[in-house]
Amino acid sequence: MSRVHVTCTVNGDETEFLCDGGQTLLNALRDELGLTGAKEGCGTGDCGSCSVIIDGRLTCSCLVLAPEAQGAAVLTVEGLASGDDLHPLQQSFLEGAALQCGVCTPGILMAAAALLDRNPDPTETEVRYGLAGNLCRCTGYDKIVRSVLAAADSQRTTSQRTNTEETA
């Protein structure tokens, strides 16, 4: 069986890989690129633990064929931090004890990042609906929701400060 050559951007890096035509993007990320942060919890798009952001859009990578990533920009949990600086969500999840086993955490972080990108000041209800596609069986979501709200707060504070500095 001939393999498909795919060129895309993964976490900011120009990336090429070979995959089978029927291979999911999730499997390509994990098996071809060694990015095992995205997990397969169900394989049917119901649990969200494979969530990645493709061209700015939150996506279950188990429902996307790898060749569909041709030319796309894919962001996975491995690309969420900027070098040594954790994303505010990562920091708030650590401080807020928003994870127990941690297997859903990469997907939830991506869903939360996508939410904050389009809504930097979400209400609790908006956070809950924003994360409704991601199952967590350990936490009861309480500390996750609080941590997303805390991250939104800190992100807004930071950007306000930056804006003030820029205008000053």
Partner: peptide
């Protein structure tokens, strides 16, 4: 499957 065996999601629960 998790579609038909429905475990609570974030929007099902309060704090």
């Amino acid at each position: 499957g998790f579609l038909d065996y429905r475990v609570p999601v974030a929007s099902d629960l309060p704090m």
